[in-house]
Design a protein around this nucleic acid. Structure first.
Lengths: 331, 331
DNA sequence: CATCGTTGGTACAACGTTGTAAAGACCCAG
DNA sequence: CTGGGTCTTTACAACGTTGTACCAACGATG
């Protein structure tokens, strides 16, 4: 692999002159410039980004820390973050935490300020206090989960409001036994969505029945199916279900079918995330559709802002838009 | 950020001694070791990976080049590659090509040998000759697509055989009007799967009817739905369909439902890839299930082999196992 | 007591790049 | 032809790390 030194020797100039040509420095004699450019071409020189970054004190990479790429929501988000970061010539290094708190902490600690300029973190199990002890030394943006106590930039949608909208939609269909799948002991988004669900019910004058609130420790399709099976076995099963993400909803659809329950006639189902697959499920799934591209772009923008502005900027909390996508599962 | 120099000053030893402690060198006096470790702790020292790699002549990163993370198959593969690479302490840098040939070429050329030690490429549109002119200067492993002409390591399943198995399964159900969705003018895997489809039909003594072979320029759900709609509008519609990936199959399921055609009674459907969602579709999808973890591990192993062994190793072609996952869509 | 091998430590250079400072070439006005 | 400025190029150091070479003790061996 050719280095500046090789090119310089070939062109008969100093290393620095070659560097100057490569970096578009103005004052280079046409004659030398030509010779350098020829030498660059014949050697096929490519700058050593690592060395350049060492010198410049930056890395040119971002980390994206998320639970699992195989989960459609994160796969889609990751793709969009890659696009948004690419627009500013950042490479993106992806780390999976598999949703465990230890690994989220370890990852954040290990990445340190050397491999990456900043990190975009989509925490699953992280507590606010995990960030206190941490100080990763680089800007961090949180996606989704919102820890109000910690002074960290954050992007996400208004989960309480979105959950209210989803639940109200079910109320407006005339359903009055509305269940929720996805309650979780310490996951922040779960708490917020549950709050929105409760608000919508009480606003509509409907009772909040605790047996209609089903926990899901994971948010996979299987958990949704289990939860739905449980709901359908109740003495008075619900006539509508709000699932806290689309995977739970997809599982719920299957459980309903296996119990011979028709969706949406017997039970209406609403999901959350608008995964691509949800437009093709049978029936297709009504769901809260966050503007994922907006989330990705906001996250990258927050990072750029903080890299320019420094530590002492006020942490910002960007709320991105969402919509309710109405499909067959509530029609 | 603390450097070795800072730690050395604090501990009252040379930089190199600190380096030795950090790297677990054996012969350090207990007394010094203790002082260094204290200094390491109080400064919170973390090695500058960039500098270390510059010195060592490696980068510690792999690139994973694939069409799109939002496509479930690639999301799942990416997750597994991350895991496999992590076992050897590689970071993974993901690049999306969006399936365009220009961007595949550009990405491969740009990554060069500085940012990464090697690349795992899942080509979509790349021709064999694109690699000829290229010589990225680092080991490259190809996933899936198999360009026999180019001396590059490759991992994948036997597409011809897998397609034969899938098609034969439909034959054994007693179907004799078996269609194929996913033919493609120059995509290698498409050609191979089509070949397997043809072989299975002729082996079974069934005619290959060209009107039952439907092109798909993209492999998304929409394309599968369109293709299926077309097939169902034929004078004699097929009684079985082999789709070249699961997304096409999911689209086909929906089109069938919209045409009031029952799966599997009227039309049996087989997919390819075993996406996680395919176990939960309605009906659940019979599909070819490649051992994705094996693919990921083989790819990483091939890279390690070549980084050790050098350029002159014979290119290897690893065939990973697959199975036929039989579900409701053919039951 | 001289020699040797082992253990423990250090100084220096180098990886490839770029910022700094300074030196050299050139041109024009006085 | 001198002085001053502008253009052009260069040597050097530095980013943080580690490999190499070397030095200094030390106890053991002859």
């Amino acid at each position: 692999m050719a280095t500046l030194k090789d090119v310089a020797r070939l062109a008969g100039v100093s290393v620095k002159t070659v560097s100057n040509v490569v970096n578009g420095y103005e004052f280079v004699k046409p004659d030398n410039r030509r010779r350098v450019e020829e030498a660059l071409a014949t050697t096929g020189y490519r700058p050593n980004i690592g060395a350049r970054n060492l010198r410049r004190g930056r890395t040119g990479s971002l980390a994206l820390v998320l639970p699992e790429l195989s989960i459609p929501y994160f796969g889609e988000m990751a793709g969009l973050v890659l696009e948004a970061a690419g627009e500013h010539e950042w490479n993106v290094l992806i780390e999976q935490t598999l949703g465990t708190r230890d690994r989220e902490r370890a990852t954040l600690a290990a990445l340190g300020p050397h491999m990456i300029d900043a990190a975009i973190v989509s925490p699953e199990a992280l507590h606010a206090r995990d960030f206190d002890q941490l100080d990763p030394g680089i800007p961090v943006v949180m996606l989704g989960e919102h820890s109000v106590d910690v002074p960290i930039d954050h992007v996400g949608i208004d989960n309480v409001l979105a959950a209210t909208v989803a639940t109200r939609h079910l109320v407006e269909l005339g359903r009055n036994r509305i269940a929720a799948i996805g309650a979780h002991p310490y996951r922040g988004t779960a708490t917020q969505r549950l709050e929105g669900y409760r608000t919508a019910l009480t606003t509509a004058g409907l009772p909040v029945r605790e047996e209609y609130i089903v926990q899901a420790l994971n948010y996979h399709r299987r958990d949704g199916a289990d939860a739905m099976a449980h709901l359908l076995s109740l003495p008075t099963p619900p006539d509508a279900v709000f699932c806290f993400n689309d995977l739970l909803a997809i599982g719920a659809l299957r459980a309903a079918a296996e119990h011979g329950v028709s969706v949406p006639r017997d039970v209406a189902v609403v999901g959350f995330d608008n995964n691509e697959e949800s437009a093709y499920s049978m029936p297709s799934l009504t769901t809260i559709a966050p503007d994922k591209a907006a989330i990705a772009h906001s996250a990258v923008d927050l990072i750029r802002r903080r890299l320019k502005g420094g530590q002492d900027l006020e942490p910002e909390d960007v709320q991105t838009p969402f919509s309710l996508e109405i499909r067959e599962s509530t029609r």
